[in-house]
């Protein structure tokens, strides 16, 4: 394995890759996640709520990929997990938008403040 010419390339990769610290990726992901949380709480438009959920899922994915590259470089389990997260996010987006369409047909609005049928 060490005689593989790709191993030399990988050594170059990790030496150069160390110039960006892991914490930088974590900081970007944290900012993206907090932006998503704020949008999730404060959006009046239901479509924007779904977009905020996608932002949060992407922030989690950035974390998974960063840990996979920096801490688990041989068994890249973080990348496999990120693929499953992408799958679930696609299913969530499809079902969420279908629910939104159904709500819009029944209530003629996408204002989150008026979706209070299940409020006690």
């Amino acid at each position: 394995m060490s005689a593989d010419p790709r191993a030399a390339t990988d050594a170059v990769t990790i030496v150069l890759g160390a110039t960006i610290p892991l914490q930088a990726y974590l900081a970007v992901a944290a900012l993206l996640f907090c932006t998503g949380v704020w949008g999730l709480i404060n959006s009046r438009n239901a479509v924007r709520v779904l977009m905020s959920i996608e932002l949060m899922l992407n922030a989690v994915n950035i974390n998974l990929m960063a840990f996979s590259d920096y801490l688990d470089g041989q068994l890249i389990r973080g990348q496999v997990f990120a693929i499953f997260v992408i799958t679930v996010a696609a299913a969530e987006a499809a079902v969420g938008l279908a629910i939104l369409l159904s709500l819009y047909r029944n209530r003629e609005t996408v204002d989150m403040e008026r979706f209070n049928l299940l409020r006690w």
């Binding site: 050594a11 990790i14 914490q23 944290a30 996640f33 907090c34 704020w38 801490l71 688990d72 470089g73």
Partner: peptide, 27 residues
């Protein structure tokens, strides 16, 4: 949300990550 961001940053910068990890597999 700002408080949550500060908390996450503190976690990211005070945890001792096991760096450097194994070599990335790359391509």
């Amino acid at each position: 949300c700002a408080g949550l961001f500060v908390l996450l940053l503190r976690v990211a910068f005070t945890t001792h990550w096991a760096l450097p990890g194994p070599l990335p597999v790359g391509e």
